[in-house]
C-alpha cells in the first residue's frame, strides 16, 4: 500500500531523515516511534506530500507522491496531532466539504456513521471554537476517514482524548486495519503502539534503528525476549545504557 525507498530529507544543513526504507501492506498497523527529533513527523509529512523529499521515492497505492501527488493523496488521510479546523464551518459542513473534495458517493450514510462512531451527533451544528481539543480531534478523524482511505497516518492520535474516546479510537484503528487499510501511527505512547501495532519502526536521529514485528525484534536480541516495547525502546535508543552508566558513576 505504501512503499518508502531510500528517503532522505534535509533542512538546510540538518539531515532530518536518512536513507529510510519501509513498506506497509494493507491491514498492517505500523507504529512509528522514536525520541523527539527522530524524524517521525518529517517522515509523515513527506508521505503526505507536504514536504518534498530531498531524495528517494514514496509510492502510495501505486502513485508516486512527488510525480503524481493528486493520485497519491486521493488514497490517504492524515490526522495531525494538532487539529486545525476551519473557524466558521460547523462539524456537519466540515464533513460535507471533505465529501465534496473526495467525491464520496454515499456521503450522507458514511458521514452519519462516522459522526455516530465518534459521538459527535449532538455537536453536528457547532463551530470548532465551541469544542474541546478532544472533540476537535474526533472531528479531524471523522473527516479523514470519510473517503475510506487506503492509507491512514495518525500523528499522536490520542492526545487530549478521554478514556472512553481513547477506547473508541483504538477500536476504529483496528476496524480500519481489518477492512484492509494500511495504518501508520506515530506516537510516544508506547503502550498504545504495543497494543495495536502489528509492526514497529523505531527511528533515532533520522535513521531507522529497528523495524519488524515485536516478535521479530525480540528475536533479534535474546535479552529482550521477555521485555515490553518500552524496555526495547530505551535499550535501542541507548538511554538505558546511559542511565546505567550515570548510576554507576554516582557515589
Amino acid at each position: 500500500m505504501i512503499e518508502v525507498h531510500a528517503l532522505h530529507k534535509t533542512y538546510e544543513t540538518h539531515q532530518a531523515v536518512i536513507d529510510l526504507s519501509f513498506t506497509v501492506s494493507p491491514g498492517e498497523v505500523l507504529g512509528l516511534v522514536g525520541p523527539n527529533g527522530a524524524g517521525k513527523t518529517t517522515t509523515m509529512r513527506c508521505i503526505t506530500g507536504i514536504l518534498q523529499p530531498s531524495s528517494g521515492h514514496i509510492v502510495v497505492a501505486g502513485a508516486d507522491v512527488v510525480q503524481d501527488p493528486v493520485a497519491a493523496k486521493r488514497n490517504l488521510a492524515f490526522i495531525p496531532d494538532e487539529p486545525h479546523l476551519f473557524d466558521y464551518l460547523t462539524i456537519h459542513e466540515h464533513m460535507q466539504f471533505y465529501a465534496r473534495v473526495y467525491n464520496v458517493a454515499d456521503r450522507d450514510a458514511r458521514a452519519s456513521a462516522l459522526v455516530s462512531e465518534m459521538e459527535l451527533t449532538e455537536k453536528l451544528h457547532a463551530l470548532p471554537g465551541t469544542l474541546s481539543r478532544g472533540m476537535k480531534q474526533k472531528v479531524a478523524i471523522a473527516c479523514g476517514l470519510l473517503h475510506s482511505p487506503k492509507l491512514v497516518l495518525f500523528d499522536e492520535p490520542l492526545t487530549g482524548l478521554d478514556p472512553i474516546a481513547i477506547r473508541r479510537i483504538k477500536q476504529t484503528i483496528k476496524r480500519l486495519a481489518a477492512a484492509g487499510s494500511a495504518i501508520i501511527i506515530s506516537s510516544h505512547l508506547l503502550g498504545l503502539v504495543e497494543e495495536i501495532a502489528t509492526t514497529v519502526l523505531l527511528m533515532q536521529n533520522g535513521r531507522k534503528v529497528l523495524h519488524g514485528t515485536l516478535a521479530q525484534i525480540r528475536e533479534s536480541a535474546p535479552d529482550l525476549r521477555e521485555k515490553g516495547l518500552e524496555e526495547i525502546f530505551l535499550r535501542a535508543t541507548g538511554y538505558e545504557n546511559d542511565a546505567n552508566a550515570t548510576r554507576e558513576t554516582q557515589p
Binding site: 503526505t48 493523496k73 494538532e82 486545525h84 479546523l85 476551519f86 473534495v101
Partner: peptide, 14 residues
C-alpha cells in the same frame, strides 16, 4: 491560514 494549509495540502488538489 493554518487550517487551510494543514487540511488542504494533504487533499487531492493541484
Amino acid at each position: 491560514t493554518l487550517p487551510d494549509a494543514s487540511q488542504l495540502f494533504v487533499m487531492p488538489l493541484t
